[in-house]
């Protein structure tokens, strides 16, 4: 297939996944801000989402402080912010429009309808009280896109590049989310804080649709290291790092024939660390260090996919 087509499909999927994750982070932050908790002032509450998106500098340049209204605007609606939900969905649609023939018409219509409805919503304005509904809407549209892709797209290379985009992005987002929360919450000092932390950890789980899964898997109170285990090395948890690489590695095995051997190696290496890694070792290395390292490795894979397949032969 055309390199440019692969590039557009891959980035379309990445941007939709990014918008969904952004919505998850915003949603959970907003819900948590409604739980009374003296340990956090507004800044402590609203800075992490911006941190997760790696956008501190851009935010501080354009906004006066980490208030709910500012962060919501910055992350949901600000078109100057390339990782805002609006920008990500706009970019997804632009990518889709450029290669609408490479996907099923249902997929194109899903992405196009999403964009049309988004513009409608922006025209109507987004009140603070609507934020949860807005985030739910973004998530449900992303689910719809995934379902339509799964249900209608021919299983050719185009499909593989869409899936690659989704999982490279998701792995990155889950790692960032976990890292930000972990730094914020550890260590636990007294019992009252532990009580509050229950809400914090459960909110993190909910943000990646893992709350019910946690209960099913561990049947236990929420422990930070178990949360980490669930989101890093459990392969049956769809948004975990391991699950992402369970998807990525075989796709790359099929795509890498004469080209892209370095992609295959990087993916295999990352996959092996998750597949054969032990939580105890990860903790002794330091979860933060592990996650930072993972984010870099995942980025390296993204860059190599870009070079080998998407930019076209030089």
């Amino acid at each position: 297939m055309l390199s440019r087509t692969a590039d557009h499909l891959y980035w379309m999927a990445r941007y939709i996944e990014r918008a969904e994750n952004m919505a998850r982070v915003l949603d959970v932050t907003y819900r948590m801000s409604l739980v009374a908790n003296s340990a956090y002032d507004e800044t402590a509450r609203w800075k992490p989402p911006v941190q997760i998106a790696d956008d501190i500098e851009a935010f501080e340049k354009n906004y006066s402080g980490y208030t709910a209204a500012n962060v919501i605007h910055f992350m949901a609606l600000d078109e100057r912010n390339p990782s805002s939900i609006v920008s990500a969905l706009g970019a997804a649609r632009e990518n889709a429009r450029a290669v609408r023939v490479a996907m099923s018409s249902e997929m194109w219509e899903t992405v196009n309808a999403l964009w049309l409805e988004l513009r409608q919503r922006i025209r109507q304005g987004l009140r603070e009280a609507d934020i949860c509904e807005f985030c739910d809407w973004v998530k449900s549209r992303s689910h719809l896109f995934r379902g339509v892709t799964f249900g209608t797209m021919l299983r050719d290379d185009s499909y593989k590049f869409v899936r690659l985009g989704s999982f490279v992005e998701r792995a990155d987002n889950t790692a960032r989310l976990l890292d930000a929360k972990y730094q914020l919450l550890l260590p636990v000092v007294d019992a009252q804080e532990a009580q509050v932390d229950y809400y914090e950890w459960s909110s993190l789980l909910r943000s990646v649709s893992a709350f019910e899964a946690y209960q099913k898997v561990f049947r236990d109170t929420i422990e930070p290291w178990k949360v980490a285990e669930l989101l890093v090395i459990r392969d049956d948890m769809p948004r975990s790092l391991h699950a992402c690489y369970d998807e990525l590695a075989p796709i790359l095995e099929q795509l890498c024939r004469q080209r892209g051997m370095e992609c295959l190696r990087l993916a295999g290496e990352n996959h092996a660390r998750l597949h054969y890694g032990r939580m105890a070792d990860i903790f002794s290395m330091g979860l933060h260090e592990f996650l930072q390292d993972f984010i870099l490795r995942n980025n390296a894979l993204g860059a190599e996919i870009q070079r080998a397949f998407l930019n076209g032969p030089e």
Binding site: M1, L2, S3, D157, L255, R257, Q258, F309, L310, P313
Partner: peptide, 8 residues
Amino acid sequence: FMRTTEGP
């Protein structure tokens, strides 16, 4: 030629 993911 066209540039494809499998080469020209």
